[in-house]
Design a protein around this nucleic acid. Structure first.
Lengths: 222, 222
DNA sequence: GTCGTTGTGTCAACGCGGTGTCAAGGCCGG
DNA sequence: CCGGCCTTGACACCGCGTTGACACAACGAC
């Protein structure tokens, strides 16, 4: 399902936790960045590229709750998932007050955390993507070209969404296969090219440009 | 979101809880009112504008349970969601006895509360849903097509309600099975398709669109 | 420039699987 | 016992994804 390589920021000083976690997240297809103390995490989290933050409450130099509060103040729609050292120590109230969207108590199972992250990621996904005359509405799964609705197959829709989500940037074949096809099999296959071809037939040949040896790029606004 | 500006009343004296909560609710698109003690909450809750109440049991001047009882007596169909200080203190029995529709124990996760609210909102009070010539009155469980009443079976009505509630949006098969059938079994079954087929026979084939591989979408425009 | 190599565009064909619908059967309340 | 209502299996349809084949464009070596 077209999860467009969501940027996740992990703020955690304990390597024993952050290492397996970021590995697991990467395996699920997220783009993971790591910060190891409060101020660094806060700075990184202010970047609009980050859509989801996993935040430990116990951090050097700046309390996690404080980081949470500041992040929330600056970015109301950011998804913040709090890791609490023990469920007793930090009450839900504190987390709520700080503006966290969800929290999970250590020790936690990796699978559960990933499930929570998936849920948060769904909430974080933008409902509408727009670039170069194309509008993609993920809620209704409809796409428009200059206001006129396009009739797209499921895969075509997912592919277009993925490309438009990173409009102006190159999306590699591997990313596309991973996000749209959910297979990391990178055997040579014409499938991807075929779908790109079909898309071009429907939206015109100028919006998707081939980046030879790498992938494709959707036209950034202009 | 799915619910068009549902009026929610939050009765909570602790600012540390009410502040983030009302922020979270507002972010989800609800119209939130706040009352900080029992009598005020009761008064506000009697207004027919309010469709859903989130009620803390520990309140100044009047016990939350008492507020709940009185609200229930006056408005049988009002959705009441109880916040209990700790799961041990107030038993489910008390809450149910007082007439609450759901209750949730502190500490709770914001995401979970919001999910419960969504569920309650879906059940909430004589709501009239309208889209594309269809009018659904969930109070009397009657549906109309261009003013003419439809004769629908219970499941057909539930299905139509669910689709119209998210008119313009794709409702996945999983969501429909969960919300209409309340089973999370996602075994392949033709049941859902059969009901959609029957619905189409009664309201015409153009209002419900199949979104292949995902679910169905009810026509969004008026 | 020419050639060879590698990556890409696209056509056509195939087969799978999601969906629409009929019909049979079961459950339940009147 | 009858009549709605829901479920389920069966079956056909057809949209859709996949794949192989082939032409061709891009690029490097010379």
């Amino acid at each position: 399902m077209a999860v467009p390589a969501l940027n996740v920021l992990l703020i955690e000083d304990d390597d024993a936790i952050s290492a397996p976690l970021s590995r697991g997240l990467a395996r699920e297809g997220y783009d993971v960045a790591l910060a190891v103390d409060g101020p660094a995490g806060l700075a990184a989290g202010l970047s609009s590229k980050v859509a989801l933050v996993i935040l430990d409450v116990g951090l050097p130099f700046m309390d996690g709750l404080e980081v949470c509060r500041r992040l929330r103040a600056a970015r109301p729609k950011l998804q913040i998932l709090l890791l609490t050292a023990r469920s007793e120590e930090v009450h839900a109230v504190d987390g709520l007050d700080a503006g966290a969207d969800d929290y999970i108590a250590k020790p936690f199972r990796l699978a559960e955390l990933l499930a929570r992250v998936r849920a948060a990621a769904r909430r974080a996904e933008p409902r509408e993507l727009t670039a170069a005359g194309i509008r993609v509405d993920t809620g209704s799964r409809r796409a428009f070209l200059d206001g006129a609705e396009l009739t797209l197959s499921p895969k075509e829709f997912d592919l277009l969404s993925r490309l438009v989500a990173d409009a102006g940037q190159v999306v590699t074949r591997e990313q596309l296969l991973r996000d749209v096809w959910e297979t990391s099999w990178q055997g040579s296959s014409r499938t991807l090219d075929q779908h790109v071809s079909w898309l071009r037939a429907k939206i015109g040949p100028n919006l998707i440009t081939t980046v030879r040896g790498t992938g494709f790029r959707f036209r950034g606004d202009a």
